[in-house]
Design a protein around this nucleic acid. Structure first.
Lengths: 222, 222
DNA sequence: CACGGTATCGACACAGTGTCGAGTCGGTCA
DNA sequence: TGACCGACTCGACACTGTGTCGATACCGTG
């Protein structure tokens, strides 16, 4: 949906770099520059020059600077979806580990593209498309958590309490914000090495209302 | 020299409005326009015109658009500080009520200036001064919670667990994000009427690890 | 080889920001 | 009273960045 418009197959090996090369070059330049400064401090001219083209030519590939970021976010989101799908479903056997793995996976994936994540967190407030994709991620994460919590309650593992969806929203929101602060080195922030641990603990308390998780935490040493 | 007479039409009023009037007018215009659209869609010319002055004159009062927002935020923060200081310290007698009142106070105060709050949440990512003030609020809120949690633990009311500061950061961050979504009518979001309730419950679980709060909630009906 | 889609850029129009210098105005003091 | 000062005001300018348009070059295909 959010990927670049599917153009017909472009010319093969030619003396001139193909459009796909250019598109990739713009994307690569953008991610590199985002590591140095904020998107708002990167002009379209910077992006174009970095990709070896002129500013008007940039518009042949992307309608705006934000569209480049959207494409970048799209890649990261896809990566996160894949990584999350690869998390083994140990919810029944070892719920603590399951929640921890999910949280750690988000942390790892978005942390690996912190520059893009940070830029998107800012742009999503002003750009509807980035905002929509971001919301979609939050929503799907929320739905998955809601379902898992309801499952645990049916199994009798977790006690009843707040509507599962409300609880899920609160927890997912907390993760977003805490992870963001951690990537941005915001103040106040949790020590980078402890974030996953801290979030994990709050999740368990909120879902199971118990100090000691149902089964031992995979990293109880702090 | 040889100034055109047609040019000096302005300044008809008997007494010129004072600088304070202008400053207040700019602030008022800004808060009003922020209720209609985002800061980025408000030009300095809009602000100046709204205050009855020209664009260059705007710069006599504020160095930039962001500075106006900073002044606005400063007022809201002051208001929040006062409101919070007025919350009765029932931590020992009725902890549940105490936490609820604190959360509700933030919700009420910032909610009363949702437009300013929303604008600041966006600008703080790009403007260092707004960001610093915002961080200061987060930090002081965090420190207060940290101290209260430590107090509860010493009293034996709350069990040991996560370092109090880490727990505080996680909870305060959650509040910020959930309250923001609520004001912004973001997706996913908790129903406006339930936000305080939901946050309150998660706080109690995280701090006391118990389903039923130490003493009855002041609004258990949902 | 000419045709058409792909790709490219110079030049322009435009919106917004910030600054400068030239003023106006009301009050103070010699 | 009139020279002066500081608060206040704005027209005009310089600058930066965005987005568009029309002209043109390139290249595989018929």
């Amino acid at each position: 949906m959010a990927s670049a418009p599917a153009r017909s197959v472009r010319g093969r090996r030619a003396s001139r770099p193909s459009g796909d090369d250019r598109e990739g070059a713009i994307l690569a330049t953008a991610e590199r520059l985002l590591g140095e400064r904020a998107l708002r401090a990167i002009s379209i001219d910077d992006l174009a020059r970095g990709a070896g083209i002129s500013r008007p030519t940039f518009y042949f590939y992307f309608p705006s600077k934000d569209a480049v970021l959207l494409a970048l976010l799209d890649r990261v989101v896809r990566e996160a979806d894949e990584a999350l799908a690869a998390v083994p479903d140990t919810l029944a056997a070892d719920p603590s580990r399951f929640w921890r793995e999910c949280i750690a996976t988000y942390h790892r994936t978005f942390g690996a593209h912190a520059a893009v994540t940070l830029a998107c967190a800012e742009v999503r407030l002003s750009n509807a498309e980035v905002g929509a994709l971001w919301s979609r991620v939050m929503e799907s994460w929320t739905q998955a958590v809601t379902a898992a919590v309801e499952g645990e309650r049916e199994r009798g593992t977790a006690p009843a309490g707040l509507p599962a969806r409300d609880l899920a929203i609160a927890l997912v929101s907390m993760n977003e914000r805490v992870l963001y602060s951690s990537f941005a080195h915001d103040v106040p922030t949790v020590d980078e090495r402890d974030v996953v641990d801290v979030l994990h603990t709050v999740w368990l308390n909120a879902i199971y209302q118990t100090t000691t998780p149902p089964t031992g935490s995979s990293r109880p040493d702090r």
